[in-house]
Design a protein around this nucleic acid. Sequence first.
DNA 1: TGGTGGTCAACAATGATTGTTGATAACATG
DNA 2: CATGTTATCAACAATCATTGTTGACCACCA
Lengths: 142, 142
Amino acid sequence: MRTPDELTDLFRSTGRKVTPQRQCIFSVLYGDVTHPTAEAVHAAATAHMPTISLKTVYQTLHDLSELGEITTLDLGTGTARFDPNVDDVHHHLVCRECGKVRDLDLEFPDVRIPAGSELGFEVGSAEIVFRGRCHECAGATS
Amino acid sequence: MRTPDELTDLFRSTGRKVTPQRQCIFSVLYGDVTHPTAEAVHAAATAHMPTISLKTVYQTLHDLSELGEITTLDLGTGTARFDPNVDDVHHHLVCRECGKVRDLDLEFPDVRIPAGSELGFEVGSAEIVFRGRCHECAGATS
DNA sequence: TGGTGGTCAACAATGATTGTTGATAACATG
DNA sequence: CATGTTATCAACAATCATTGTTGACCACCA
């Protein structure tokens, strides 16, 4: 994801208006590595702007996703998570217990569908989800 | 997934009771390759038992998933899908437009996290989701 | 056959997300 | 800097998939 200043320019150049609420969300997301939920983004934004609404957060996240600045991850935990790291190819570790998501900065070059097996399917992307138990949950009572 | 008769025995031997509703769901799922949603299972079951409730379908699907007879797939399409094919290792093609899911009967032996990279994460399973456009949607107006 | 406890169907509730609305404020232009 | 257009704001209600609750019911064991 770009810096908040660059996002301001990008929003203006694509016909979107830039408001304090949106800039607040930009700065909350910038450098975030925790794959926050919409609720988590809203909570962090509320610390700076107590009146910001959850709807505004959803709207801005949706815009950022449309512009390709963040990735929306629906990893089967019941809640979507948002990933500002779109520059590196990476996959995800999902904890079955706490739902936390961690990046796995590895490439898997062999994950391609061999010609002839795709049956007319146009492949856009391949994502690998590793499910298991994170360090914290394994350490706790189990 | 096992045959409806085998599932009947399995349910009884694990302390679950077998009802006509459940057997109806068994036969709907048996041999299904379309990865139906709960709604789709309910619709098919209703054809044989008009009074069966959606809740019963969810309950039975949950039980089957607990017993490892089907797999619950939450592939980010907003609706869970259920896969009776648990014997073969396979991955999934998800159409971004219509949400349909198709099996990809291939193994990717290299999809393992190299030792030292997993940072204390206990990996239970790895699933690969290919997103793109299915044959039908590519053929339609785009 | 009779008792017990899991299961049924109807209903309401949950949680995440989205639609609607009137008021407001950001931006381009003069 | 003033001004109008238009996207955005916040509050509220609604949607969707899924789950909790309840009293009646029926499958199963003895």
